[in-house]
Design a protein around this nucleic acid. Structure first.
Lengths: 203, 203
DNA sequence: TTTTTATTTTGACACTGTCAAGATTAGACG
DNA sequence: CGTCTAATCTTGACAGTGTCAAAATAAAAA
């Protein structure tokens, strides 16, 4: 108990838990996030969280789902700007990488094996991720019409492939394989060149 | 002790450990690989492995390093074929994805956060990964000369960016985000189209 | 054969997720 | 107001983890 008004009944543990968990996550990474430490931080006994989240897995899913909501909101904000289409795409790529960079641990939960492979994604999480991806695909379709992204294939394929590329870049950054900021920046720029339909000086 | 001739001195624990660890890895994933279970499988006491590997981390690094060697050997084999340059690149991409797919857990160790971020990569591992990457870059240079990969940027940048793309695809497959084989296949094909210099029907 | 060195083991510690059973309290109903 | 019920939280316990220190064993060197 790291000090807290002891009232037996906490009030709203659920949101307190998510908040505290997010903090630990940001500061110490997912390795530093244990249910016991979390409970202690909130000022509650070890097993109290288990009455609000069936599992540690479920807690993580909740955080990840919130991450998808945040990511989607960011996209919507960008889409409501009156920028040129290609420039917006440019901005999106940087925004995507920046999100992954600043919210590393959340990003890892959203797209990492811990939940999707080792654990079991909540149906709420699945829905959130699907919706975010759908919003992306809708935009890809438009980007194809605007001749920004290639239209040699369906929006789904182009959307999948280009997203996979962004994801790969994000992972290299997140997982500590590329730590050099300059490299990431230059790699991002190069990737944009590759993704965008208009190739510079072909032939 | 899962049965084994008990001779107190094992003979060559080191390689036995790596072999057994690789098996557990393939069958149960890294989550199922504990030092104690490993020791038991080899027929030795809990802490015996610690006289050959300082850490669990070091054990994992050894496996990862072997993975890099294997990956590099595969590349060399491919490069010794007398195929057309573009076709070889095509083959490489499929080979890369296939490697990640069939050796999921090893791939995850090689490029995952467990070692590179959470843990600390052995200098031997660092060397192995650097060398593998260098071999890739050398080939990229040649691919640029052959007009297969774009030459709008240095071999380093083009190599980094295109590798990041492949990595992203691999991760989606490995981490259980895309389970559908057909999707991966089609995504791979689309990605190749994007990576390769000659854009189909531009303008 | 004795001594040194290389291996391996037993004991211990602090930590993890989570289950079962009991304690405490808030809110609903009279 | 008092009583009952349902929600909420706690204590105890178990099996599992990585890894350190000290003791036991065996092989190699003298």
């Amino acid at each position: 108990m790291t000090n807290q008004k002891k009232t037996y009944h906490h009030g709203d543990l659920i949101s307190s838990l998510i908040k505290a968990a997010s903090e630990i996550l940001q500061e110490e990474g997912v390795e530093g996030l244990s249910m016991r430490k979390l409970a202690d931080k909130v000022g509650v006994s070890r097993t109290a969280p288990y009455h609000h989240f069936k599992d540690k897995n479920e807690l993580l899913c909740a955080i990840a789902a919130a991450g998808f909501k945040a990511q989607e909101a960011r996209l919507q904000t960008l889409l409501s700007s009156h920028e040129e289409s290609e420039k917006r795409f440019h901005q999106y790529v940087y925004q995507y990488i920046e999100f992954a960079d600043t919210q590393r641990e959340v990003y890892d939960l959203m797209y990492g094996r811990l939940i999707w492979k080792t654990g079991t994604p909540t149906s709420a999480l699945k829905d959130a991720s699907k919706q975010t991806f759908k919003r992306w695909l809708d935009w890809v379709e438009q980007l194809q019409e605007d001749k920004v992204l290639p239209d040699n294939n369906s929006a789904l394929r182009v959307g999948q492939a280009s997203w996979a590329s962004l994801h790969g870049l994000s992972r290299l950054l997140i997982d500590g394989i590329y730590l050099d900021r300059n490299d990431i920046q230059a790699m991002t720029e190069q990737m944009i060149q590759t993704l965008i339909r208009t190739q510079p000086a072909s032939n």
